[in-house]
Design a protein around this nucleic acid. Sequence first.
DNA 1: CGTATTTTGATCATTTTTGATCGAAACTGA
DNA 2: TCAGTTTCGATCAAAAATGATCAAAATACG
Lengths: 268, 268
Amino acid sequence: MHEKERHRIILSAVQDRPVVTVAELVTLTDSSEATIRRDIASLHVQKKLRRVRGGAESITPPQFVGLAGRPFSVNEALHGLQKRAIARAAVELCDDGDPIIINGGTTTFQMVHPLASKRMQIFTNSFPIAEHLLKHSKNTIILSGGVIYREQNIILSPFDNDVTRNFYAKRMFMGAQGLGPLGLMEADPLLIQAEQKLIGQADELVVLADSSKFSSRSSLILCPLERVATVVTDEGIPDHAAQMLEHAGIRVIVAAAGAAQEAATASG
Amino acid sequence: MHEKERHRIILSAVQDRPVVTVAELVTLTDSSEATIRRDIASLHVQKKLRRVRGGAESITPPQFVGLAGRPFSVNEALHGLQKRAIARAAVELCDDGDPIIINGGTTTFQMVHPLASKRMQIFTNSFPIAEHLLKHSKNTIILSGGVIYREQNIILSPFDNDVTRNFYAKRMFMGAQGLGPLGLMEADPLLIQAEQKLIGQADELVVLADSSKFSSRSSLILCPLERVATVVTDEGIPDHAAQMLEHAGIRVIVAAAGAAQEAATASG
DNA sequence: CGTATTTTGATCATTTTTGATCGAAACTGA
DNA sequence: TCAGTTTCGATCAAAAATGATCAAAATACG
């Protein structure tokens, strides 16, 4: 990875959280601690960020208004590490130029950092994702139109005739509240509405779900398991869940913290 | 392959991605590293791109959409004071609960500050306006869907069937490049496209134009003067311009720095 | 057609960047 | 305070990128 590319990713990451650790940046950029430290030092003298012990922080402290006050912050710390690894593995599925859809959510939001050094066509219904990518990447951003719901941070239109129908992607990436034999589960009716609108606008549905999602239950079923092409999860996935997915013909990618590797591919 | 041909390819590639490596360009042009380096060096002195170790990057100098306050760069400082006064007077036309449209632009952006204390239904095609209002107000924000154009900071859909058609407002607020007997003038074709889409989705068209706009000329006519219901401007408006507007049956509001007052109302 | 000039590609020494190691310094918790 | 852990910075060797040089190829020109 090139210097500029790393710098872009580092600056992207530093906006997202109060502090980014050297270790996080190492996994995010696939380079050594020494290099990250040099990068941070370099960006520090350029006044692009502030160097702190253990990592780096944004140069503009009160800048987190947009990211702090939302429900994003709750789950964030909990499975943060896995989420980032999962997001990174998901981005590795993409090439420059690909048209993709990213459904809003805390897990999918983590994709913005590895995406910072890409140049893709990204359709999203998430205002924060669009905002971050607009500021920290050169990707083409296409936004879904409609009312911005502050709590969920998604944009939703009650009409069927919006730009969503004019965008067709290679892949759609989404999170989920739960993942069981009955299918993909979601808790918030509003999110259901947003997601159902997007499913069907992509060849391949990729679900990002950390291992806790396999034990989580929810009342609303979004779509059957068969609709899902790929699941990206972490090493904590229970055996029975892996078997369930495999049985449904789903490709399972297990993202290790630091690297991503393919674990199983079931025949269709 | 000719030199010019390679240069075209290199410049194209550099626009396409945050950073292109020498190796990438070698495969892209079927020439040697030495040649690519010479090309990059040549284009570097021509200021067509920036030479970085490992390759080249786009020459986007301070192309950083401000996080905090400065989403637009150039016009900002010029008529800042008047613009703010005009924007303030424009907002005073509105009441809580009103559905309004705000077309993106440097003048209309100034409306966000007085709007911070309102609770209205605001439709906009401007990402920075939406961002600011989302973070600093409790207004309901409805966003137009489509591609986000970074330079103009507006969202534009090539399709006619988007949410825009489902929103109808009491007033639409917009800036303009110029305002003459022939009508409302704009310089950027992209902005024209965005504005024409919105005009017609509101009862009343309100144009925010500081007094310099009456002497400014531009090639593209957006709409005839008769379509405009109200013009908000500053004290520097020339007499002939005021007469012209009055003659067209336009209500003219002159915003003094510090207060807004109605100056003239022409009968229809 | 033949010569002069320019452009290109290859080789190699030099410089820059990177990653690993290890002692020093800072932080943590008792 | 002190021991244990983490983070840092310096150093060094390996790898990568670069620049210079020169011969071959392409092109221009008389």
